[in-house]
Design a protein around this nucleic acid. Structure first.
Lengths: 232, 232
DNA sequence: TAAATCTAGTTAAAAGATGTTAAAATAATG
DNA sequence: CATTATTTTAACATCTTTTAACTAGATTTA
């Protein structure tokens, strides 16, 4: 049996029967599932916890699935979102596409198929869950960033990074040219979003900016009240 | 790392009768069993001693078996955990799966069956392709590491290792490309996690780094506040 | 718009953890 | 028992992270 942190899944579905059924099925398949009954509850939950995957019903009380998805996207531009649509409505499909949905399921559907789609999206976005993580080499402007080695290489110069520096830079890279939400970063790297951690993060942003100065096309800009964006 | 003749087993069970019965039975079968009465006691014991196997009742006073298992997993990502569940509760099974349980027993059960399952898990975890058996030679970059011979071989050069050096390198290899928790290493090799032992371990890390320098693709990097990671 | 308030940028000091070397203590060996 | 190998302890240097303090923007409020 594999010892891995399970994928944290946010499921928002107002039909109690379907919701509970899906939750249980996905849990048996090894996911951690948080079930919310309406859009507002879903959004609050999303803000307070860290998830890897979202499944939203489109028709929801208090806030519909698309609005929810938009708000979630503002906070996390990468998280996969899969919609459950009541019928194959063209408008739904279109609107979902605009928001950046990763997939759709039209009710009714077989749970096995849902599972397959989730797995497909996860493979696409994360890489194989079973295999060892591939060596992360990334290009950031003129730099090569070796996350596992904690190195930032520019021409012959090699800047060693501390673990926190590397973690933050890695997250910024994942959200390259997009806003990395402050709170998300704090929760992912510092484990909790507190005042002091936030200040600590600011210090690290300053450090990273210093390292990246060698390439003047690179910038870490602040988006007031939201977070930071690494732009090339 | 001392290769003890018996498997060290941590049993957390609040029912005094069942607890004592299991302890005695398993001891007759050749295990060393530590019995704790509640989750907190179990966790403290786990932190202070070294075990090879955990058996946790799910319903426990002071801290339930799942929470206990999660905290144990944070410290030791490999140790087998078997749950005892009061009834065949689906939620229990699910939550256990997410935590990475290795097996379940639903009460009531026959002790012979428990024994068989423990033995099966131990066979599986020892013969796991991921983990290396102590007797095998392993490759670390350009080196061949013969743990039982306490030798590190590179081309014609053969570096003799002391037992502590070999133990630490062996543990690092088991957690290759993963963080080896400081406290876990201290408990496994030094038997307890104290300030002075920690400093001693740091000295050994320095020694190992010196040995491994011949292959510049190998590194033992520190993860501040957590532990060390051997990366290839 | 000015003042107040909140958020972020930056630097430096403080606190904590690790790296390294060498001497001291302990254990193993002939 | 003397010698040698191993491990621990001590000391000091360095690195990492957090906290504090001060400055500067941004946004809101009156």
């Amino acid at each position: 049996m594999k010892h891995m942190n399970s994928v944290q899944l946010l499921l928002v579905e107002d039909d109690p029967n379907l919701g509970q059924l899906l939750k249980e099925y996905l849990e048996v398949k090894g996911f951690s599932v948080k079930l919310c009954r309406n859009g507002e509850e879903g959004y609050l939950t999303f803000k307070n916890e860290v998830f890897d995957f979202c499944i939203f019903d489109v028709m929801l009380p208090r806030m519909d699935g698309f609005t929810l998805a938009e708000k979630v996207r503002q906070k996390d531009t990468k998280i996969p979102i899969l919609f459950l649509t009541a019928k194959s409505m063209k408008e739904d499909t279109i609107k979902g596409l605009q928001i950046g949905a990763d997939d759709y399921m039209t009710k009714p559907f077989r749970m096995e198929e849902l599972l397959l789609r989730i797995q497909a999206i996860l493979r696409r976005t994360q890489g194989d869950p079973g295999s060892t993580s591939p060596k992360e080499h990334q290009q950031i402007g003129k730099f090569t960033f070796e996350y596992d080695q904690r190195k930032l290489i520019f021409q012959d110069e090699e800047q060693k990074l501390t673990s926190k520096e590397a973690d933050l830079l890695f997250l910024l890279c994942q959200y390259r040219n997009q806003v990395l939400d402050r709170s998300l970063a704090l929760k992912k790297i510092w484990r909790e979003d507190t005042y002091f951690n936030a200040r600590s993060m600011d210090v690290y942003v300053t450090k990273l900016r210093k390292y990246l100065r060698a390439d003047d096309k690179l910038q870490i800009i602040n988006v007031h009240g939201q977070g930071f964006k690494l732009i090339e």
